Amino acid sequence: MDLNRRNVKKIMFIVAFAIVLFLGLQNIDNIYTFFKVVFSLLSPFLMGLCIAFILNVPMKFIEEKFFRLGGKHDKLVRKLKRPLSLVMTIIFVLALIFFVMFIIIPELGNTFEILQRNIPVYIGKINSWITELLVKFPELDNWISTITIDWNKVGDTAFSFLKNGAGSVLNTTFSAATSVISGVVNFFLGAVFACYVLLQKEKLGRQLKQILYAFIPEKKADETSLKPSSHRVDKFLSICSLANKTFSNFIAGQCTEAVILGLMFFIALSVFQFKYALMISVMTAFFALIPIFGAIISMFVGAFLILMASGPMTALWFIVLFQVIQQIEGNFIYPHVVGNSVGLPSIWVLVAVTLGGSTMGVLGMLINIPLFSVIYVLIKGAVGERLKEKKIAPSSIQ
Rank of each mutant, 00 (worst) to 15 (best):
L49S: 06
Q26I: 02
R117K: 11
I91L: 13
T89Y: 06
S229K: 15
G311T: 06
I28G: 00
F266N: 11
S238D: 14
L55N: 07
L212W: 03
M264K: 01
K136R: 07
Q327C: 08
T157D: 14
F112Q: 11
T146M: 01
I149K: 08
A268S: 13
K136A: 13
F293C: 02
L316K: 02
G48Y: 05
K203Y: 09
F161D: 14
N171Q: 07
K388P: 00
K209A: 06
V197A: 10
I397R: 04
I375Y: 10
I397M: 07
S225L: 01
F286S: 03
I97G: 13
L237K: 12
F61A: 09
I267Y: 12
T314M: 13
G302Y: 04
G356Y: 06
L133D: 14
F17K: 02
Q207H: 04
S395G: 12
A382N: 11
K245T: 10
G165D: 07
L212G: 00
A382Y: 05
L84G: 00
P345T: 08
M264N: 02
K9W: 10
F13K: 13
A177M: 14
F39E: 05
L46R: 03
F102D: 13
M360N: 10
F67N: 07
D222G: 00
I105F: 14
S179K: 05
